[in-house]
Nucleic acid binder design. Structure first.
Length: 272
DNA sequence: ACTATGTCCTGCGAGC
DNA sequence: TGCTCGCAGGACATAG
């Protein structure tokens, strides 16, 4: 569910509120294990650890944990959370009632709890030494690097933007919004874009992501950050979720098509 | 190697 | 009111 701006908002909120806190004990939910590592592995790696920092990498939330002093060597660890479509991480008072679909609860030394809730169970938890995303960060990559990602690709530009091995963090909403702002149709073959079009796409993607971060992400259906607060970027959507509504620029009806199984929205007149 | 398609899940709103 | 259908912010495996 959450894309780069939502994950960034969640990670910043968590960093502010739980950095320095320690994980006293871990409860992992029953049978449907939404986990990549085994439950025992995760619990063992988390219990007793102090959280140094929380940050975003692509659509992943990375918890940097303090190394355990184990003889001479410090064992470092990172707890990685991917929220899938419907995952959320909430900081709650320990006494507050457990929400349905709660799959993990971390008791913190401060007396609060960090809870992982995920109705559709597409989310994943894992523990590794050093996490690295395969794709480039869209807010970091320069123009030459950006165009190089798409060289020789016949897939629609929309699909290429969603490919996490190329770019980390772009999802369905921001791909559609960036393509609209760049004036490019989602079905265009990636390699067919001109240099000028890549220029527009590169800058509109960054602009859209930055503005969305500023507004705390897009709240559609159930997205909330770690404080349970909603974002406001959905108010700025120009095409996403606006099927058949008039284009805000030219009044043409926004079209909805399916590309690689994902709904895609565009203005047939503004986008070429 | 690259691309398109199906699958994993639950919940919600639309339409009958 | 209650049912069924289609759809949902993601990522993988598989087949071609």
């Amino acid at each position: 569910m959450p894309e780069l701006p939502e994950v960034e908002t969640i990670a910043r909120g968590l960093a502010k509120r739980i950095s320095g806190d320690s994980i006293e004990s871990v409860w992992l939910g029953p049978k449907p294990e939404p986990l990549k590592s085994s439950a025992a592995e995760i619990a063992a790696a988390l219990e007793g650890r102090r959280i140094l920092n929380v940050r975003r990498v692509g659509k992943h939330i990375v918890f940097d944990l303090e190394g355990n002093q184990n003889g001479a060597a410090k064992i470092r660890a990172q707890w990685i959370v991917h929220l899938g479509m419907t995952g959320s991480l909430l900081i709650c008072p320990a006494e507050s009632e457990l929400e349905k679909h709660t799959h993990a609860v971390l008791q913190l030394a401060s007396g609060r709890e960090l809870r992982f809730i995920d109705p559709r169970r597409f989310g994943r938890l894992s523990v590794i030494d050093k996490f690295e995303a395969p794709g480039a960060e869209p807010l970091q990559i320069d123009f030459e690097g950006f165009t190089a990602l798409f060289r020789g690709r016949k897939t629609p530009i929309k699909s290429a933007l969603l490919n996490q091995k190329l770019l980390s963090g772009v999802g369905n909403i921001y791909a559609d919004e960036a393509l609209f702002r760049a004036g490019i149709r989602p079905r265009r073959r990636a390699a067919s874009l001109t240099r000028d079009e890549f220029k527009r796409l590169h800058s509109s993607l960054k602009r859209v992501l930055k503005e969305a971060i500023r507004l705390g992400g897009s709240s559609i259906s159930d997205y909330v950050d770690s404080n349970g607060e909603e974002g406001f970027f959905q108010l700025k959507h120009r095409v996403y979720g606006r099927d058949s509504e008039p284009c805000l620029v030219c009044k043409t009806r926004i079209k909805r098509i399916v590309i690689a199984g994902r709904s895609s929205h565009y203005c047939p007149s503004c986008q070429k």
